[in-house]
Amino acid sequence: MIADIITIVRDNWLLLLVGQYPNGPLGGIAATLILSVLSIALAFPVSVLLALARLSKAPLLYWPATAVVFIARGVPLLMLILWTYFMVPIITGYNVPGFATMLVTLVIYEGAFLSEIVRGGILALGRGQMEAAKALGHGGASAMLYIILPQALFNVLPSILSQFVSAIKETTLGYVINVPELTFAANQINNQLLTKPFQVFFILALIYYVVCWSLTRAATLLERRIVTKRSGLSGAPLALTATAATVEP
């Protein structure tokens, strides 16, 4: 069993790492990581806008943003992927590759979940910050931009990191629409070998475990640092209400 696993890794490490890259599309764990990094990076601004809209009193901002968040929370990611797969070519008029489809879906999905985290971070700050900023002459928008958001976003950094872990796990769903990523690569190996499905998929699970475990660990350490840092500055322990808001695919 272990000998099998070592042989499979030795024969296919390049495919697991970058897919068929020089001769084909980038795949493997590289594609998985690029997809997750891009999706979180693009989802972040979306999420801040969604969170601000959800906190606004204007119904034209509040209701559409709330609808987006509830749709993302209530509909399976797989269903959203099927929607994008079907709608994006109609809207843009181009046949987009699976990678782009997956990216668009993840930006919407992660954006909705991140926005709840950001909103929690803003609400956790307490009213005094906004009142103090206004007393010092800031307008509503500039208080939000210079006083509230920098603190709130700093406090929710660990949650953003654990959302990144969720994004890595969610990229596996690209397998269903044939996006070349890690799960897809493992499936290719399995189709070549045919006789050792357990060994191949065990390697797959192990790779995901190592990547996600290290990042989760980093999130925990970061959270501990931030809590000590904030409590050191303000002299009082900080209630991080948003940290528990992690989701899994």
Partner: peptide, 23 residues
């Protein structure tokens, strides 16, 4: 807990259905 939270659910399903069943 650590295994089930750090491995994607889809991969766990694939491992059961294609992997464990073959053993």
């Amino acid at each position: 807990v650590s295994y089930h939270r750090n491995v994607p659910t889809l991969v766990q399903l694939i491992l059961w259905y294609f992997g464990v069943s073959s053993l």
